[in-house]
Structures are given as C-alpha cells and as structure tokens.
C-alpha cells in the first residue's frame, strides 16, 4: 500500500497551516496530526514558512491610540482570564468540544445492523461532521456520496479494497469512489467522517428534500 494515502496531502496541509481550510476539514487534519509525528513536523515547517512570508510584508504601523487603549486593558484581561482545562485524554483534543463524556454516552443512531452513527455538527459550507461506529468484523454496504468524504480512524481499524487502515490514519475519498469498508475482527472501529454536501436548508421543503441528499448505507 502506498504510505502517502494515510496522510493528508501537501495541498491540505498547506491550507491547514495557512488557515484557509474549511473548519470541518481542519478538524480531520487535526485529529490525524495528533497521532502523526511526520505531519506534525511538516506543519511546523509550513508554519515557519507562513512566518517568514509574514516577516517580508511591508509593516503598517498602528496608531498611538491603539497602543494606549490596549495597555489600559491589560490588568482587566488578567482578572477575567480563565486557564483552559483538559478533560478526557482518550479522546482527540479537537473533538472535546463535541464529546464531553466519552464515546459511549453519545446519542448513537442505528444505521444498519453493523453501523451506528452520531452527527456532531455542521460546517458553514454544509459539510456534515459525524462519528461512525462499526461492529467488529462489520461491513458497510458499498456506498457512494455526493461530495468528498474525509475519514480519520479514532479507534480500531478497518480495511477496504485499497488496504488496511489503523488508528490515526487519514483517508480522502472523492464522490466517484465506491468503497466497502470492513472493520477488523479484533474490535469495533470508530471513525470521524466529514461529508461535503449542499448547504442544509430548514423548513418544510428541506424536510422533504433532505432524505434525497442524505448519504445512504442501504
């Protein structure tokens, strides 16, 4: 198997470092990078590049007012600032905002005998962010999707036509790609999945329309 398929490519890493990636995709990059020393290294370099480019800009001085205002605010900043707390170390740091009490306590919905899913949120571009949970040895039926699909394996492992994927691995499948992931026998597999799709509209019409545009695991 080509090793590069388990890492985001340099286009994605560059956009992540530059800050121009949709947040749902950045979430997947972050979940992968937490487990990947190689990509950590490359992102450090990419951030260094961003920094060097910034140093080359022609400086645009701020007003003395701005400086005075800011200096006057510093003491009150200290008073209101709360140090961030870390919660559950078994869960990716970037997912803490959605998972407060472990995977077990999420509102999982049954999609098929082998698969449960829970939607975490929507991105501003309409992309759906969800977790998928596949039973040991369980299979998803062959499926396609409308837009690109980003997957990061959070727990366990699965295989499809292209190979075996393990914890931390990142996969990008485009709409033309048909695949049939199967969880390995030794444990259940939990994945973070982001599916690009049209913006969701609210209201009666969308309730009629949405089933048509939802991804189906038949």
């Amino acid at each position: 198997m080509n090793k590069s398929t388990i890492h985001p490519d340099e286009t994605l890493l560059t956009a992540y470092s530059a800050g121009s990636l949709p947040l749902s995709q950045a979430l997947c990059i972050s979940a992968h990078v937490e487990h990947c020393p190689t990509c950590q290294q490359e992102i450090k370099h990419l951030n260094d590049l961003g920094s060097e480019l910034m140093q080359q800009l022609k400086p645009s001085p701020g007003s003395t007012d701005l400086k005075a205002q800011l200096l006057a605010r510093l003491d009150s900043l200290d008073e209101t600032h709360e140090a961030p707390t870390r919660i559950d170390k078994t869960i990716s740091r970037c997912l803490h905002q959605f998972i407060k009490n472990g995977y077990q306590n999420l509102a999982w919905k049954r999609v098929s005998p082998d698969i449960h899913s829970v939607e975490l949120c929507r991105d501003s571009n309409g992309a759906k962010v969800e977790l998928l949970r596949i039973k040991p040895g369980g299979a998803a039926t062959t499926h396609t999707h409308l837009g690109d699909e980003y997957t990061v394996i959070l727990e366990g492992s699965f295989s499809d036509e292209s190979g075996l994927y393990q914890k931390g691995d990142f996969l990008l499948r485009d709409a033309s790609h048909q695949h049939r992931p199967v969880a390995t026998q030794d444990g259940e597999c939990i994945c973070l999945a982001v599916t690009e799709g049209p913006i969701q509209f609210t209201g009666l019409f969308s309730r009629l329309l949405n089933p048509l545009i939802r991804r189906s695991y038949a």
Binding site: S24, A26, R93, Q97, R122, D123, G126
Partner: peptide, 17 residues
C-alpha cells in the same frame, strides 16, 4: 463574520501542534 456560521470551534483544532 461569515454568512453561515460554522458550528465548529477552531480553538482546539489549531493548538495541538
């Protein structure tokens, strides 16, 4: 300031490196 606000908080996404 975006028209469709993302439900994703970027804070923890960019600070783990």
């Amino acid at each position: 300031n975006s028209r469709y606000v993302s439900e994703i908080d970027p804070t923890e996404i960019f600070e783990n490196i």
